[in-house]
Amino acid sequence: MKKPFAEFIGTFTLVFFGCGAAVIAGMGSGPTAIDILGISFAFGLAIVAMAYGIGPVSGCHVNPAVSVGAYIAGRMELGDLISYVIAQVLGAVAGALVLFLILSGKAQGWNGGLGQNGWGVGYLGGYAMASAFLFEAVATFLFLVVILGVTQKGQPNELAGLAIGLTLVAIHIVGINVTGVSVNPARSLGPALVGMGTNPAALGQVWLFLLAPLVGAAVAGLAFKSGLLGTQAPSK
């Protein structure tokens, strides 16, 4: 149970810090508010911290798309994939639930948001569904290229966590205005489920944030499995 528990903690941390930055620090004004850059770094630094905190235990996937990409690339067993995804979803739900309980204690100003992803008129930049899907698929593909590249055998990986975290920062800087950025089905599903009472529209759109990241991750996994990318033969 060590690996699934590590994945639970890691995904909890990502949602708690990343979505927490968006809905707690992001809703402030004046010197207490943060902008897109601050939220982006909250997500990225959460990954950096967990990469070194739980990386030696589970590899710090904290993302079903990462686990699926690793499985397709031949770096993970099916049993581990299943246990990782379950732990990641539970961790995301727990992180969103803790945020909900904290924000429920706010006297005024909270609209029920938990950092849910979305698209369309009324959501951030108002991008269309096709734009949202394309961004999520491409961004996840690039994210997995970095992850699978810096963690392959023969690579010096002491700074792998930093490279992965900074990539996630860059993805958020570009994409927050498009979808709020998922590239992680668990990160989207947790807040959507916990917040369905106050924001049912997010749960209705969550399918895109389950499907698009998995498509991008699968393409990246196949690229490494085939040898098109990477310098080492995949090994489990």
Rank of each mutant, 00 (worst) to 15 (best):
residue 1 M to H: 08
residue 3 K to C: 02
residue 4 P to E: 00
residue 5 F to T: 01
residue 6 A to N: 03
residue 10 G to C: 00
residue 11 T to P: 14
residue 12 F to Y: 14
residue 13 T to K: 02
residue 17 F to G: 03
residue 21 A to D: 02
residue 22 A to K: 09
residue 24 I to W: 12
residue 24 I to R: 09
residue 25 A to F: 11
residue 26 G to Y: 04
residue 26 G to H: 03
residue 27 M to K: 10
residue 28 G to R: 02
residue 29 S to W: 08
residue 32 T to K: 09
residue 32 T to W: 11
residue 34 I to P: 02
residue 36 I to D: 00
residue 39 I to A: 06
residue 44 G to K: 01
residue 50 M to R: 13
residue 53 G to L: 13
residue 56 P to K: 04
residue 57 V to M: 12
residue 58 S to L: 04
residue 59 G to K: 12
residue 60 C to G: 10
residue 60 C to V: 03
residue 60 C to T: 12
residue 61 H to V: 06
residue 61 H to G: 13
residue 62 V to M: 13
residue 65 A to R: 01
residue 66 V to A: 15
residue 67 S to C: 09
residue 68 V to A: 15
residue 68 V to E: 04
residue 70 A to Y: 14
residue 73 A to R: 07
residue 74 G to M: 07
residue 77 E to L: 12
residue 79 G to W: 11
residue 80 D to V: 14
residue 82 I to M: 14
residue 82 I to V: 15
residue 92 A to W: 00
residue 95 G to D: 03
residue 98 V to W: 04
residue 102 I to C: 08
residue 106 K to W: 15
residue 106 K to D: 06
residue 107 A to R: 09
residue 110 W to L: 08
residue 112 G to T: 01
residue 112 G to A: 09
residue 117 N to T: 13
residue 117 N to Q: 05
residue 117 N to R: 10
residue 123 Y to W: 15
residue 125 G to C: 07
residue 126 G to Q: 07
residue 127 Y to I: 07
residue 127 Y to R: 14
residue 132 A to L: 05
residue 132 A to M: 12
residue 133 F to I: 15
residue 134 L to I: 11
residue 138 V to R: 11
residue 139 A to I: 05
residue 142 L to T: 03
residue 143 F to W: 13
residue 144 L to G: 05
residue 145 V to S: 00
residue 146 V to H: 12
residue 147 I to R: 04
residue 154 G to M: 09
residue 155 Q to I: 12
residue 159 L to N: 10
residue 161 G to S: 11
residue 165 G to L: 03
residue 167 T to P: 07
residue 167 T to Y: 08
residue 168 L to K: 00
residue 171 I to P: 09
residue 173 I to F: 11
residue 175 G to M: 12
residue 175 G to R: 01
residue 176 I to Q: 10
residue 178 V to S: 06
residue 178 V to R: 13
residue 179 T to E: 05
residue 179 T to K: 12
residue 179 T to S: 14
residue 180 G to D: 01
residue 182 S to P: 00
residue 182 S to K: 07
residue 182 S to L: 10
residue 182 S to C: 03
residue 183 V to P: 04
residue 187 R to N: 03
residue 188 S to C: 05
residue 190 G to H: 04
residue 191 P to M: 03
residue 192 A to M: 02
residue 192 A to H: 09
residue 193 L to T: 02
residue 193 L to C: 09
residue 193 L to S: 05
residue 195 G to F: 07
residue 195 G to L: 06
residue 196 M to H: 14
residue 200 P to S: 06
residue 201 A to Q: 11
residue 201 A to F: 08
residue 202 A to Y: 10
residue 203 L to A: 09
residue 204 G to A: 00
residue 204 G to Q: 01
residue 205 Q to M: 12
residue 211 L to C: 09
residue 214 L to Y: 01
residue 214 L to T: 09
residue 215 V to L: 07
residue 216 G to M: 11
residue 218 A to R: 00
residue 224 F to P: 05
residue 225 K to C: 02
residue 225 K to D: 02
residue 227 G to P: 08
residue 228 L to D: 12
residue 232 Q to F: 14
residue 234 P to I: 02
residue 234 P to D: 05
residue 235 S to I: 11
residue 236 K to G: 12
